[in-house]
Design a protein around this nucleic acid. Structure first.
Length: 383
DNA sequence: CAATGCGCACCGG
DNA sequence: CCGGTGCGCATTG
């Protein structure tokens, strides 16, 4: 159902941008309404969904809220500011003005922050090989946010408070879809570190539901600890302790294994719960550190058996590992977890109409890995 | 009047 | 210096 909205909204954002007009809620809704007749509230809620899935980024630029087509934005910035990634909430200041129709009202209310961000979320499209760093960046950009926040702090408003309750996913009005599988309780609260971001502003990225779970898992499995080293998860880590993840651990574990080559020698030593992950690393370190690993983690973030991923989960996954643009292709082709596990090399390279470079990386570093780990697990079960 | 086009100033990299 | 952003004004329908 939201399909056309995605196109409509992204189209409106692109159109506004090309016209050099700020793609704010007001203009986006107006344009969608004019072009497609959709009513405001509907457009607004669909927009929020897109924000949650990171198809659209909500940013605070020059003191006002603005929206970006994630696929087009992500590119520039690289490392560094992971910090900025943090999520922030938009200030309403502007909104108020906007009062008009909108309902921003419900948007969060926050104090203000006027920073702006450069949107950033980016990863360069070209990320070099396996997405190491780039993906990291990406991740950080998004992930930080994503990982944690269950909802979009930003947008969603209701939940004005940054701190989501671990339990529920309820807060957000829309996300259902996304999280249906994933979620679970993974919402975390803290991720948001305001301070960090504040400097420049940040994108309010949204978070993905996904991230969440992993942390939890890790806790119990020593193997996981490796994974945790990965970038992304930090935020996730924090949460770890608390929630329960629906996903079977084994999947996760296996993924880690392979990709990571586990550094661990023979056997992983058991770690006590909770702490392993957290150990030492600071966020930064983490970010820089494990590139590939990062990806894995991301996967896990989504938290589950790929078999259970919805189309939105698949898209979120690729967005979070640095391929936002390609994520749209997966979405367009309606590739869900099951389909993903059935994809062949040629499907990825030619069936999605995405560029060869990213397609190769996606297939080799992600699709193949997910398939391998998934099927490996299965065989293990039966053996 | 709304939609659109775009020059130009700003800003961060 | 360059690219992204968007204000503010002119133009168009």
């Amino acid at each position: 159902m939201s399909e056309p909205y995605r196109e409509w909204i992204l189209g409106s954002i692109d159109s506004l941008r090309s016209r050099k007009a700020r793609p704010d809620l007001d203009r986006i809704c107006r344009m969608v309404k004019r072009r497609h007749g959709s009513d405001w509230d509907r457009t607004r809620s669909e927009l929020e969904k897109l924000i949650e899935e990171q198809t659209v980024l909500k940013v605070n630029y020059k003191g006002s809220v603005s929206y970006r087509n994630a696929a087009k934005v992500l590119r520039g910035r690289r490392k560094t500011e992971q910090s900025k990634c943090a999520v922030k909430q938009p200030s309403l200041a502007d909104w108020s003005t906007g009062d008009s129709a909108l309902g921003p009202v419900d948007e969060d209310h926050m104090e203000d922050m006027e920073d702006e961000m450069s949107t950033t979320a980016g990863m360069d499209s070209s990320m070099d090989e396996e997405g190491d760093e780039s993906s990291l960046d990406a991740m950080c950009a998004q992930s930080t946010a994503d990982s944690g926040i269950s909802m979009s702090p930003i947008t969603s408003s209701n939940a004005s408070q940054p701190v989501p309750s671990p339990t529920s996913s309820k807060n957000s009005p829309t996300h259902d879809a996304l999280r249906q599988d994933t979620d679970s309780a993974c919402i975390l609260s803290e991720h948001i570190q305001p301070e960090a971001q504040q400097d420049t502003g940040s994108v309010a990225l949204v978070q993905q539901p996904a991230a969440i779970c992993l942390s939890t898992l890790h806790v119990e499995d020593p193997l996981l600890s490796h994974c945790t080293a990965a970038p992304v998860s930090m935020s996730a880590l924090r949460l770890q302790s608390q929630h329960i993840c629906p996903v079977p651990l084994r999947h996760i574990v296996s993924v880690c294994h392979q990709d990571e080559a586990l550094k661990s020698d023979g056997g992983p030593d058991p770690v006590e719960e909770g702490e392993m992950c957290t150990k030492s690393t600071t966020e930064e370190e983490i970010n820089n550190g494990g590139m590939n690993i990062g990806n894995d983690v991301v996967k896990k973030e989504i938290g589950q058996d790929p078999l259970l991923w919805s189309v939105a989960d698949v898209a979120s996954y690729f967005t979070s590992v640095g391929f936002p643009e390609q994520a749209l292709a997966f979405r367009t082709q309606e590739v869900d977890g099951k389909s993903l596990l059935l994809m062949q090399r040629s499907d990825v390279l030619t069936g999605l109409s995405i560029r060869l470079g990213p397609a190769l990386k996606i297939y080799e570093n992600h699709v193949k890995v997910l398939q391998r780990s998934h099927f490996q697990d299965d065989s293990r079960l039966f053996s």
